[in-house]
């Protein structure tokens, strides 16, 4: 699945070059968005979906450093290490 997601991301970057729509206005999506703009908005939505898949299937194993709980500031912490 990891390779599929990577391939899809590369394909998205290629499909971003929508030269076949360069000279087209219609169809107007929702009656007012020209097809060239609607397509690129679709690219943005597809990017969100593909990155969600990447986060799920391609998450690097070596970045999950154990969490440190974020503790509330201790009394006098602002004076830590003061001379």
């Amino acid at each position: 699945m990891k390779k599929v997601v990577i391939a899809l991301l590369i394909l998205l970057a290629v499909l971003h070059q929508d030269f076949w729509l360069w000279n087209r206005i219609e169809p107007l999506v929702l009656g007012f968005i020209p097809i060239g703009l609607a397509y690129q908005i679709g690219v943005s939505i597809a990017a969100g979906i593909l990155w969600a898949l990447a986060v799920h299937y391609c998450w690097p194993a070596d970045v999950d450093v154990p969490d440190e709980p974020s503790t509330p500031p201790a009394p006098g912490a602002s004076h830590a290490r003061s001379h």
Partner: peptide, 21 residues
């Protein structure tokens, strides 16, 4: 015209996310 969206916004959407990842 509409070229600005594809040139800057949708490219940024793909590449910024890639940079974070």
């Amino acid at each position: 015209g509409i070229v600005v969206y594809g040139k800057m916004a949708s490219w940024s959407g793909i590449i910024h996310a890639a940079m974070y990842f």
